[in-house]
Every structure is written in C-alpha cells, then in structure tokens.
C-alpha cells in the first residue's frame, strides 16, 4: 500500500513550498516570546479598525449583566473609533467596494 510514512512528516513544511524559496533554509529557531508581539499587534489593529464588528458581536451575546456592560463598552468603543478616524476609514472602504459591486 502506498502511504505517507512517518519519515515524511519531517518534510511537511517543504511539501507546502518549493525548495528554492523555502525560508527554513538557514532559519534559526526563535524563542516563542519574541513572536508574541505579532499576535498582540494584529489584535490591536483589528480592534482599531473593526470597532463595528466588535459592536455587532457583543450585541449578539445572550442577555446578562456582563453582556450589557460589554454591549455598552462595544458601542462606546465604536463611537470613539468613528470619532478618531479608523472607523470612518473602514466604512469608506466598505462603501467603495459596495459601489463597485452595484455597478
């Protein structure tokens, strides 16, 4: 039976890429703590730009005192982002795309 034997699992990453561009070549192990900023920065950017999504998400939480606090916070956050600009930029991008769609 043809199969992918255990040895092949060592080469999974190379199965996703061509050898000439494989960035594992010469790559050094990097401590995980140095990669945390990627997760934190990505989350912050999403919070800044997509206050609308956050507001909608908390709005769908089942009713409870905690949810009510979160809903109020979500609305406040969206309002703040709209006033500061990122929220408006998000809306403008959405509107431009929907205009193109409607043509």
């Amino acid at each position: 039976m043809a199969h992918n034997g255990p040895l092949n699992s060592e080469h999974h990453l190379s199965r996703l890429m061509t050898p000439e561009l494989d960035p594992t070549v010469g790559a050094k192990e990097e401590p995980l703590r140095r990669l945390w900023p990627a997760a934190v920065a990505g989350t912050l950017v999403l919070l800044l730009l997509n206050g609308q999504g956050l507001e909608k998400w908390v709005g769908r939480l089942p009713e409870s005192p905690i949810a009510n606090t979160l809903i109020a916070a979500g609305q406040e956050w969206k309002g703040l982002m709209d006033r500061l600009g990122p929220g408006r930029a998000f809306d403008a991008a959405r509107k431009a795309f929907q205009d193109f769609r409607g043509r």
Binding site: P23, R34, L35, W36, P37, A38, A39, V40, A41, G42, T43, L44, V45, L46, L49, N50, G53, F90, A93, R94, F97
Partner: peptide
C-alpha cells in the same frame, strides 16, 4: 512577512484581515 519584525508582521496581518472584513 518572514523578514519583518514580529510586531510589523502582526500589524500587516491585522490590516489585511480588516480589509477583507470591510469588503
């Protein structure tokens, strides 16, 4: 992506996801 500092990688990824979400 790989050559960027980790924080820049996260920022670029966050922007890309936000753009997909907007569109």
């Amino acid at each position: 992506f790989w050559r960027m500092p980790a924080a820049a990688m996260g920022v670029a990824c966050g922007f890309a996801v936000a753009l997909v979400e907007a569109f």
